[in-house]
Simulated scan of single mutants.
Amino acid sequence: MSIWVAMFIGACLGMIVATFLLSGSRSARTKAEYEQYIAELELEHQQALVNAQRRSVNTSRAVLKGKMAEQLAPLLPQFRYLPSDAKFLGDPVDYVVFDGYTDFRDGDGTAEDIEVVLIDIKSGGARLSKGQQAIAAAVQAGRVRFETVHIDFNEE
């Protein structure tokens, strides 16, 4: 009977050892899979970071080019007006041009020759903002006027 007990104990111990060894190899395999997955995620993260930096630099360049175009526009051939007639605003439109004003001021033109033009400079694929579109619609609808505001510093 003692042989049967010894065999039973040996079988139990064998099952315990086999289970422990198999679970250890399974956990090692699972650990290796997770380490590979983490490495892939780190690589994707690095690539996303490089792409984000590249997009940021390209956007920054486009903004700088647009701002330079706004400032230099009166000196470029596409600008049909005298630079001395153009007054830079920047926002919500880039320029108010008093076309014909320099000639009138210098005695070479008449008051009827003066035209007020609102201009926004765009480069690349840039489009008018919603606010600029609303301003253009107001001008086209004739909702434009001239006002004089008098300020008296002697009043209390």
Rank of each mutant, 00 (worst) to 15 (best):
F20Y: 08
F20P: 03
L21V: 05
S23P: 00
G24Y: 03
G24R: 09
S25F: 02
S25G: 05
S25D: 02
R26H: 04
R26A: 03
R26T: 03
R26W: 03
S27D: 08
S27W: 04
S27K: 15
S27L: 12
A28N: 13
A28V: 04
A28T: 03
R29N: 07
R29C: 09
T30F: 14
T30I: 06
K31E: 15
A32M: 13
A32T: 05
E33I: 04
E33N: 04
E33K: 10
E33G: 02
E35Y: 04
E35K: 00
Q36K: 12
Q36A: 14
Q36S: 07
Y37G: 01
Y37S: 14
Y37D: 15
Y37V: 07
I38S: 08
I38D: 02
I38E: 07
I38W: 01
A39W: 00
A39R: 00
A39M: 01
E40L: 13
L41I: 10
L41R: 12
L41P: 02
L41H: 03
E42G: 00
E42L: 03
L43A: 04
L43S: 01
L43Q: 05
E44A: 03
E44N: 11
H45K: 15
H45F: 14
H45C: 14
H45Q: 12
Q46N: 10
Q47K: 15
Q47A: 15
A48R: 10
A48Y: 15
L49I: 15
L49R: 15
L49S: 13
V50M: 14
V50I: 15
V50F: 06
V50N: 15
V50S: 13
V50W: 13
N51Q: 12
N51D: 06
N51I: 07
A52K: 13
A52I: 04
A52W: 06
Q53S: 00
R54E: 12
R54S: 06
R55Y: 10
R55V: 15
R55N: 14
S56F: 08
S56N: 08
S56T: 02
V57E: 02
T59P: 01
T59M: 07
T59R: 02
R61L: 06
R61A: 05
A62S: 06
A62Y: 01
V63W: 07
V63M: 04
V63H: 02
V63Y: 04
L64K: 09
L64H: 10
L64A: 09
L64T: 11
K65L: 14
G66T: 12
G66H: 08
G66S: 10
G66L: 12
G66F: 07
G66A: 12
K67C: 13
K67S: 11
K67G: 04
K67N: 13
K67L: 06
K67F: 10
K67Y: 09
K67Q: 14
